[in-house]
């Protein structure tokens, strides 16, 4: 069991997310930086989808009530075990009674704490991820707070012999305050003027302070709409279309001064113009963008997007092979 002494800013139970309910309006949720999360589970020899704690910007203080093995991955964060600094991206043994204290992340946003045997909370709609907006899944559908007692699985057989395993440096992601995010332009980009599309792709955008697992907001440039007579069923603002299902990563243009990029906790549909969709392989980078991060959007083709996704999968399999 984990006894939470301080919850930090927002510490959530997350796994791979719920996949089969999008058509019913339930977004997947799940780890915002899948790559870092999965590498934590690989370090422990856990199945990739075992639940972990996702820490946002400022971490929790946790007392361990069981001897186990953990791995900390994701955004660089100062972590102390009984007051002594411990490394990230490495499997560490934890004794019963140990106190693990996370401080603030120095770069990036999301840090992961994976535990051998996984975090144990009841499955809701087939997974353990937290969807805070609907208070669904995770630990009572909410972020952790002081006094919570969170169950963890039994350490997996043999895991104590694997303590000290480390992710090779070349597989540890870089965290930066400048991001290039690849997008496939489309859905309703025809509603923007040519100048508007050019401005979208050629401008430097800035991440807003209110960005979170639901959506990221960007400002910094002006994208103009085409003059348009809204059809029956659409709202009468230039930014409205007849309602559609939004893909995850969809970049909405609610007005000419703002972009809203939908992440894994987002609404599944609505009636805003979408200028394009961030590719799946770059969703982790978006979620790791701190407020004020300078962001450029680069247009790619669907084929390039699929290749990027496959190359990321191959990278994960390569790490798994190396640590076997």
């Amino acid at each position: 069991m984990l006894r939470i002494r301080d919850g930090g800013l927002q510490t959530l139970v997350q796994d791979m997310g719920r996949k089969e309910f999008y058509h019913l309006g339930v977004p997947p949720s799940g780890a915002a930086d899948k790559y870092s999360y999965v590498l934590g589970n690989i370090l422990l020899g856990n199945p990739h989808d075992y639940a972990a704690l996702e820490i946002t910007l400022l971490g929790p203080v946790i007392e361990f009530c069981k001897r186990t093995v953990i791995a900390i991955t994701g955004a660089p964060c100062e972590v102390r075990l009984n007051e002594q600094p411990v490394p990230m991206w490495e499997s560490l043994v934890i004794q019963e009674g140990d106190m693990l204290a996370f401080r603030m992340t120095t770069q990036g946003v999301k840090t992961y704490l994976c535990v051998s045997g996984g975090i144990q909370v009841p499955d809701v709609l087939g997974c353990k991820s937290t969807y805070v907006l609907s208070q669904l899944g995770g630990f009572h559908g909410r972020k952790l707070q002081a006094g919570d007692e969170v169950q963890i699985g039994e350490p997996l057989p043999g895991v104590f012999h694997q303590v000290g395993r480390r992710i090779p440096d070349e597989y540890i992601p870089a965290f930066s305050n400048e991001m290039d995010i690849r997008v496939v332009v489309g859905l309703s980009s025809y509603r923007l003027s040519d100048e508007g599309i050019k401005t979208f792709l050629n401008s430097e955008w800035q991440v807003g302070l209110e960005s979170n697992n639901i959506a990221y907001r960007y400002t910094g440039a002006t994208v103009s709409f085409k003059p348009f007579d809204p059809p029956f069923g659409a709202g009468n603002n230039s930014s409205n279309v007849v309602d559609i299902v939004y893909p995850i990563g969809a970049i909405m243009v609610p007005n000419e001064k703002e972009l809203i990029l939908l992440l894994r906790d987002a609404t599944t549909g609505g009636g805003f113009v979408t200028i394009g969709t961030a590719i799946n392989a770059d969703l982790d980078l978006i979620a790791q963008s701190r407020p004020n991060t300078k962001t450029r959007f680069l247009a790619v083709t669907v084929d390039q997007a699929i290749e990027a996704r496959l190359s990321k999968k191959r990278k994960i399999l390569a790490v798994q092979e190396l640590l076997r």
Partner: peptide
């Protein structure tokens, strides 16, 4: 402090 729709 409010950030990412959370208060600390």
């Amino acid at each position: 402090i409010e950030v990412m729709k959370n208060f600390y």
